[in-house]
Design a protein around this nucleic acid. Sequence first.
DNA 1: TATTGTTATACTCTATAACTATA
DNA 2: TATAGTTATAGAGTATAACAATA
Lengths: 165, 165
Amino acid sequence: MARGGREGSDGSDRADAPAADESDEVTELAAELRRLLLVSSRILRSHTASEEVSASQFSVLAFLQRSGTSTPGALADFEHVSPPVMTRMLGRLEEAGLVRRSAHPGDGRQVQVALTDSGEQVVLQGRAERDAWLRRRLQAAGPQERRTLREATALLRRTLVERRD
Amino acid sequence: MARGGREGSDGSDRADAPAADESDEVTELAAELRRLLLVSSRILRSHTASEEVSASQFSVLAFLQRSGTSTPGALADFEHVSPPVMTRMLGRLEEAGLVRRSAHPGDGRQVQVALTDSGEQVVLQGRAERDAWLRRRLQAAGPQERRTLREATALLRRTLVERRD
DNA sequence: TATTGTTATACTCTATAACTATA
DNA sequence: TATAGTTATAGAGTATAACAATA
């Protein structure tokens, strides 16, 4: 990791101008984080898909199960996908009989989306099984490590997901 | 999977049988982590793709730049994709003139993969630009938070990526 | 005119199965 | 027989542009 050198060692000690070391540190963290997210999302995707629904589809179903009802636009925002992608996802879920689309009361442009009974079954029964692989690993990691991971999860969400600019 | 209710809630308080609270805690962390990885990989992918190469392709180029030379099989392992996926990725990169495939000396079954000069250019010039978005956010998060993220990155890699079973 | 959603189009990402060539 | 890689096939994930309907 070779970060040799002290900060401010070249005389540029203004507080708001990051020193070379800090810049290196951020650069390296960024590269590691990028790679980790890319690879671990692949791994997780493969471990949380089932024959019934993919990881992405399950995420939509789980959101609907908690929120009761939503619209394609709200779901697209929540999942961070473009509207056409959500239209397609909902189309597949509807074909599979897991969600139902109906007219929005009051605003004819919008569409209401809700789980069917079958969709609710998939969420409730699938949840435990779906996260089993991840739970096993977290269990093995130990309490202290889970504490770090909980902090980091919240932090990553704030840093990557919720911030808007 | 349905492991029959909560463990430990019936008075079995052996130290290696996680209490109900711990089980709930792990379950919740697993669900949050799954969702975070799914969503943030989407976000990151959209912010690290360029016209030249996608996020995945860049990751392959960056690995080659550091390792000098590799084989399709080793790259597939490293990226956690199946062999046919790597074949296709390499095909596209080769078409674009960024990598070169050549006969493996000593083992005719294997193939050697290396960057072309053009591919090296893409890596070296693309690195800073590609991570700019992520670096800005990490910079804004502050030193203490980056420390947590560094710990968590290493921890997640050990927990999710490196463990084999 | 702005918003919501969909359709059309065109990629990339991904896996499994079957095949070829070499060891 | 086992290993490395590719081809064939199929489907999911993703985005932008163009369109329709409603507000």
